[in-house]
């Protein structure tokens, strides 16, 4: 497949990384890179051309907020659309997301078959 979308998935939960990777690769047809922490994700983002980043919020050491801030601080990385993939679903949690420069939020648990569509719709990609 030519010009395959390359998406970085950052989550400290290995099982969730696996499920997301399988879902987006199989059903979305995209190329998935995974990172198990904010630090690792930032390193990958700095060195890899990415079409989008799906990141968890609750992660040790560098959580999603810090990772977003780090991405925004870099002119190149700030161009990459970010989707938060989170289990934080309360209104108070959502208020915190409003301050982030992100393209959208997908809540956990998600449908592994349709999550790719959600991603595409948020990012305005043709499905």
């Amino acid at each position: 497949m030519k010009n395959k979308k390359q998406i970085l998935v950052v989550d400290d939960e290995e099982d969730i990384r696996d499920v997301v990777r399988v879902s987006l690769e199989i059903f979305g047809g995209w190329q998935i890179i995974t990172a198990n922490s904010g630090f690792e994700g930032l390193q990958i983002a700095k060195t890899t051309a990415l079409d989008a980043i799906l990141m968890d919020i609750s992660m040790p050491d560098m959580d999603g907020f810090k990772l977003c801030a780090a991405l925004q601080a870099d002119p190149q990385m700030q161009q990459v659309p970010v989707i938060v993939l989170t289990a934080k679903v309360l209104p108070s949690d959502r208020l915190q997301f409003a301050a982030l420069e992100i393209a959208g939020v997908i809540t956990k648990p998600f449908d592994p078959v349709t999550i790719w569509r959600q991603v595409a719709e948020i990012l305005g990609w043709a499905v």
């Binding site: 099982d15 399988v22 108070s92 648990p109 592994p112 078959v113």
Partner: peptide
């Protein structure tokens, strides 16, 4: 209380996400 509910919700949803995702994939 909100924080606790948020944390509990998060903690419950995290394993549920893996279960839902894995079973969803298998189902296909």
């Amino acid at each position: 209380k909100d924080e606790f509910i948020s944390v509990v919700s998060h903690e419950l949803r995290t394993p549920l996400t893996s279960i839902r995702g894995a079973l969803g994939i298998l189902e296909t």
